[in-house]
């Protein structure tokens, strides 16, 4: 069984981002970048499935700038056997990423497509679902437990109402949630070995995907500053205030 895992390079989870004063975006120059933490969980799951003997080959893929090869190296250190880099220097929105990934799926024919439920930069939470839609294959989003048996997967999903379990036919797309697993530490020998594993380069053009379209980003702003608080006299007043803010 072959697993394809898509990984995204994002501003590190611990960085407190700064909005550029001219509103043109978020400052990323000189900022620490890492693999999207949810994608790390997807990588970890793939590696565990390989260790269990369920998966025989793991291919990591990313869509993004030349710098993203570092994220692929991290995926290779996790345990991916090889990687595919769809090089695109411009902004990649989820629909374009999904089309590129679908094209990669067309070449690789994975049985499992794993990725994070969302990237922590744009927080869009779309790519996995879009890939599944365009492939006309099942999707299991927000996965907190994955069991593979033959050509079927049983996936427990963290939904607002609780834990939903579904059964899906493979090939399928699974987007992973926080509680699925805890990603391992990258071992140093694996970090060094990753340097020698193959990374194949391709482009959106090669894959027949148009980069254009999507949303136009008009401006980026900091969230509204904390407004001056109010002193309330009674619990009722407090509850009314919280209800007014949509918090109760």
């Amino acid at each position: 069984m072959k697993a394809l895992v898509s990984v995204k390079r994002v501003v590190d989870y611990n960085v407190r981002i700064q909005v550029k004063p001219d509103g043109s975006g978020v400052a990323t120059d000189g900022v620490k970048m890492s693999m999207n933490p949810f994608d790390e969980i997807a990588m970890e799951e793939a590696v565990r499935l390989k260790e269990k003997g369920v998966v025989s080959e793991i291919v990591a893929v990313t869509v993004g700038s030349a710098k993203c090869v570092e994220t692929l190296r991290t995926a290779l250190a996790f345990g991916a056997d090889r990687a595919i880099h769809v090089v695109e220097e411009g902004e990649v929105q989820p629909l374009v990423a999904a089309k590129a990934l679908v094209a990669v799926c067309g070449k690789e024919n994975p049985d499992l497509f794993l990725l994070g439920k969302q990237a922590i930069d744009d927080d869009a939470n779309q790519t996995g679902q879009m890939v599944a839609a365009l492939l006309d294959r099942p999707q299991a989003t927000f996965a907190s437990k994955v069991e593979i048996a033959g050509t079927k997967a049983t996936v427990t999903r963290e939904v607002d109402a609780g834990l939903q379990t579904i059964e899906i036919d493979l090939p399928a797309v699974i987007t992973v949630d926080l509680r699925l697993n805890e990603p391992r530490y990258l071992k140093l020998p694996d970090i060094m070995k990753a340097k020698r594993k193959p990374v194949e380069n391709t482009t959106l053009g090669d894959l027949g995907v148009q980069a254009a379209g999507g949303l136009k980003i008009v401006k980026t702003a900091s969230p509204a500053a904390r407004s001056k608080g109010v002193m309330v006299k009674t619990v009722d007043e407090l509850i009314a205030g919280l209800k007014n803010k949509g918090l109760l």
């Binding site: 374009v96 779309q126 790519t127 679902q129 839609a133 989003t141 927000f142 607002d160 379209g213 949303l215």
Partner: peptide
């Protein structure tokens, strides 16, 4: 924008060839 909508709507958007606006 809860787990129901987040699960469903991107699948709809892709089939309509539309870039979704989330949240």
């Amino acid at each position: 924008g809860n787990t129901f909508g987040k699960d469903l709507l991107p699948r709809v958007a892709a089939l309509l060839d539309v870039q979704q606006v989330s949240d």
